[in-house]
Design a protein around this nucleic acid. Structure first.
Lengths: 189, 189
DNA sequence: GTCTATAGGTTGATAGAC
DNA sequence: GTCTATCAACCTATAGAC
């Protein structure tokens, strides 16, 4: 067994390299160098380059889903403020994993990758979580009609608004606080 | 002079190929074949592969900006319905250029490309348009405070919500009408 | 489990005929 | 202005030593 988790060393290096030049632009040589291992070790720990990035994407959505779940359980008693709590947790997670967030943004609508099926499952489970958050908030404010009217599409829009504002913030206008960004995103939610 | 616009033939083919396999995955051989010209003609009309995709991105943002401008001028007399009019124009434009929309989504937050500077300018001008739409709508409904409180970040969030919902719709759940998607996205705007 | 060396295939770009 | 032919560079993946 390895002294450190070589698999994790490799996926973290893959994220760093791919954030700079995209997945196709990230060569196995560069990933090996960034991870501090030989290229042969990449192929011992993963069956292919695709397998590395499938793991990267899986980890990313899992992390995001866990952050949303945690925010939901913490704000369970106050459904009116649930959207803001979940939005804040999302922004913090993306900020703490900026390289990964950029990568996920550039891959989320690609249907050609070898790992597209696995990614679509993970993406869908996150979108459903956002949909449920909007439903709970609507129910709490006694919305006009039953919350079944809020579909996955609304969840995708909420997620898109968060991701779009967050990356605009972190990449192009960093001189804002989290609360300022939240205020801008949540006008209306 | 060529009998048809070879440059346009090439950029359109580049969009089709790159929508399937990404920009890095799109080879010059494939683009030439899809355009129905020889590879040498690619290099006669464009200085490099990067130059082709810089033109592609420029065209995409220009098309989107023009659609927003047209919707704004048509809805000029009714600022309360401006967001929906602009949102509808955005969805229709993305739907009519789905390959290009996928490509733009996967590139919009990449800062490593040779054409990143040009793309950031184009992206910013589109975000400002959405911000202005939100400001006009807020002013029309006599919003709590001056519209200066609505920043580019809100514009980026609005754009993100539209793009996120639209691509979720067109790629994963096509069994919806434009109006249904608009209803989901605009809850709150 | 990690390493080095190399095979095998693809790519972006150029040269020169027509 | 478009074509064909070709090259040098690069990349993924494998083989085999340690």
């Amino acid at each position: 067994m390895a002294r450190v988790n070589t698999k994790q060393l490799i996926t973290e290096a893959a994220v760093r390299v791919a954030a700079q030049q995209g997945i196709s632009g990230a060569s196995m040589d560069q990933i090996a160098e960034a991870a501090g291992v030989a290229k042969g070790s990449l192929y011992y720990n993963f069956s292919s380059k695709d397998a590395i990035f499938e793991q990267v994407m899986r980890d990313g959505f899992e992390r995001l889903g866990a952050a949303v779940d945690e925010a939901r359980s913490q704000a369970a008693g106050d459904p009116a403020r649930l959207p803001r709590a979940v939005a804040a947790a999302t922004l913090e997670t993306l900020r703490g994993n900026l390289d990964l967030a950029k990568l996920m943004a550039s891959e989320i609508f690609r249907t050609d990758r070898a790992w597209a099926g696995a990614m679509e499952l993970a993406r869908s489970s996150v979108v459903v979580r956002y949909r449920d958050v909007l439903r709970e908030a609507e129910a709490a404010r006694g919305g006009p009609r039953a919350s079944e009217e809020i579909t996955e599409t609304a969840g995708a829009a909420f997620f898109g608004a968060l991701a779009g504002a967050c990356l605009d913030w972190l990449l192009f206008r960093r001189d804002q606080s989290v609360d300022q960004v939240l205020d801008q995103v949540l006008r209306g939610y």
